[in-house]
Write a protein that binds this DNA or RNA. Structure first.
Length: 601
DNA sequence: GCCGTTTTCGGCCCGACTGTTTTCAGTCG
């Protein structure tokens, strides 16, 4: 039966062990690096064409580098067979991994390294440097490391070498500078508004037809490496000039007839691509999916006798079958269209061929927002102002959740102050129509797992949000006990921003999430997806993992500290989409009466 | 080296841009 095919689908993300233990990730990263270097070195073999062997090593490196489960554990549990289950890993590479896990060395790597004693892993990270150029510099100047390279650039030894000119040397100098300034991926919350500002300007220029954001920004990944903006225009030359003069643009890196790449002042590259109307949908599809998603979609096209590229879907006679609309491309391939957030090759390609893409939460589903602050603590607006703004956004209810007393830097409230504040919420409710204001608080889970307010105070709220703000560096065991104790108190409705990570700034707390999720399920604790762009916590991978606990419910909140922050709901919803969360699991997608029944079990 | 709903052999996604070139290699996404 066709149903039996389910089990053959690879959905590695669903059995993910996330960033809990940096040690194991380090080991994966090391193996990925070695396999990548093998690929680099094989590239240099001029005797035989090993193009596809190189490709195989790269794919394997990619698989292991992006795995969240410890590769050593996979091997320990299932041996070579388990390794060969992984995409792109067959007998040969599985053997190499086994060798590394048991001896710390891969013989093939050691052999190649004798011939090419060069730090490919670092040097290939410099923009414009690939294996061939690196090898040439080694062969002629004995450059082995980034330090060697820097010296050679400073002494202008590179220009004049065969295949290198003045421009190449400048490019390398720029590449080194950029590498050393630590080219970190940028938080979505910073990159997306920048992209939207440029889209607005281009849209108002009178030079373009369509202008939209694509790439990882459209997929709403929590961090982005660069921006992609897609444009249709009859006047591509003028568009190029317009882009070069936008104040956001620091300098133009390259500019051709269809593609312009610029460095933005905020420290991010942005690709602008100009395409014809009839190719717009194909280009949007092409520049939105992640690499693996796109490879799979193109393979489906090939299997059906088509060719798919950014210009359209073409049959054997090179006739255009689809391309103007993105949906049209998927439909012509017999695929169900899925939201951009899902295009990460986490099983969506296979499901879409069988019309089985789950219906995930959408912004329109959100009826309320259960986490926000007011002037009573560290917010900027009053209860009434927040309610009025939320009503303008179409929310049916909000929950006011100011801080408890341990958050003294935020002006946290003690029991007496909190009770008075709850009275203020009652008054505000009486003055407001068309939206219900719920009584809550963001209550600290203290070091010992107790909660920061009296039971009596908490009992007079509609629900509680509980979270950790202090003692973030406890051991895994202590942290896990701390959270579980709070969950078992009977006074914890929602676990707010569970892992406490701040994107690009603070690592998540060390906690056994599986035990915590189990306790949440047992005690009816709702998990928050905090949509504040610095947090986005739970993140996509942890949502995928938590939703496997079938009774766990979620809340998607903004953690707003001023009224405009209530618009940040889209970050939370997109994160939930990336976690394949269905609306039935989200409590604040429920109407008020149903929500109230859910909040205290 | 990997992989299989046209294949266990013979394929492997596809195109843009640049610099240093006299027709293309290297790199990137």
């Amino acid at each position: 039966m066709a149903e039996g095919m389910h089990v053959t689908l690879r959905m590695p993300i669903l059995r993910v062990i996330t960033l809990d233990c940096s040690y194991t990730i380090m080991q994966n990263a090391k193996i990925a690096q070695l396999l990548g270097e093998i690929a680099d070195m094989l590239t240099l073999d001029t005797q035989t064409d090993r193009k596809f062997e190189v490709l195989a090593y790269r794919k394997a490196a990619q698989t292991i580098g992006s795995m969240q489960e410890d590769i050593g554990e996979v091997y320990a549990k299932g041996g070579l067979d388990a390794l060969m289950e992984l995409p792109g890993i067959g007998k040969g590479i599985a053997g190499a991994i086994k060798e590394y896990l048991e001896t710390g060395k891969i013989p093939k790597y050691e052999d190649l390294k004798k011939r090419y004693p060069v730090d490919f892993a670092t040097l290939t990270k410099i923009h414009g440097m690939g294996p061939k150029r690196i090898f040439r510099l080694y062969a002629s100047l004995k450059i082995r490391s980034i330090d060697d390279l820097r010296k050679a650039v400073e002494q202008h030894k590179i220009m004049g070498l065969e295949g290198f000119g003045k421009r190449s040397e400048e490019e390398i100098a720029n590449g080194i500078a950029q590498f050393e300034s630590g080219q970190q991926r940028m938080a979505l919350g910073r990159a997306l508004p920048e992209a939207e500002a440029m889209v607005r300007k281009l849209g108002g220029s009178g030079l373009v037809g369509k202008v939209v954001i694509a790439g990882s920004t459209r997929r709403m990944r929590e961090t982005v490496g660069d921006l992609d903006i897609l444009i249709t225009s009859d006047e591509p030359e003028k568009v190029r000039n317009f882009i070069a003069r936008m104040p956001e643009v620091e300098r133009v890196l390259l500019s051709g007839s269809t593609k312009t790449t610029v460095r933005l002042a905020i420290g991010l590259n942005c690709d602008f691509r100009v395409v014809e109307e009839q190719s717009f949908g194909a280009a949007l599809q092409y520049f939105t999916g992640n690499k693996d998603h796109n490879v799979k979609v193109r393979e489906i096209a090939v299997a059906k006798g088509y060719k798919l590229n950014e210009y359209g879907l073409f049959d054997k006679m090179d006739r255009n079958v689809a391309g103007a609309q993105e949906d049209g491309v998927y439909k012509a391939l017999g695929m169900q269209v899925m939201d951009p957030e899902m295009r990460e090759d986490r099983g969506e390609v296979e499901l879409s061929q069988r019309n089985r893409i789950p219906k995930v939460i959408r912004l329109e589903d959100m009826r309320g927002d259960l986490h926000m602050h007011t002037v009573a603590t560290d917010g900027n607006n009053t209860i009434l102002e927040m309610a009025s703004y939320a009503k303008g956004l179409g929310r049916e209810y909000i929950g006011i959740s100011d801080h408890s007393k341990s958050e003294y830097q935020a002006g946290g409230l003690d029991d007496k102050e909190m009770l008075r504040h709850l009275g203020e919420i009652d008054k505000a409710n009486n003055k407001t129509e068309g939206i219900r204001i719920l009584k809550s608080a963001e209550i600290d889970i203290l070091k010992d797992g107790s909660l920061d307010l009296d039971s009596k105070t908490m009992d007079s709220m509609d629900y509680t949000l509980c979270s950790i703000h202090t003692n973030l560096t406890m051991s895994r065991g202590d942290m896990t006990r701390r959270v579980i104790k709070a969950m078992e108190s009977g006074h914890m409705s929602i676990w707010a921003h569970p892992t406490d990570r701040v994107i690009n700034q603070r690592a998540p707390i060390d906690i056994d999430l599986d035990r915590a999720f189990q306790a949440a399920e047992d005690n009816g604790v709702i998990l928050e997806i905090d949509g504040y762009p610095d947090r986005m916590d739970l993140n996509d991978e942890n949502i995928l993992r938590a939703k496997e606990y079938k009774k766990i419910r979620f809340a998607i909140d903004t953690d707003a500290h001023r009224d405009e922050h209530l618009n940040l709901m889209r970050y939370g919803v997109s994160t939930a989409k990336r976690g394949w969360l269905e609306p039935g699991r989200v409590v604040n997608a429920l109407p008020l009466d149903k929500l109230l029944k859910q909040l205290w079990k």
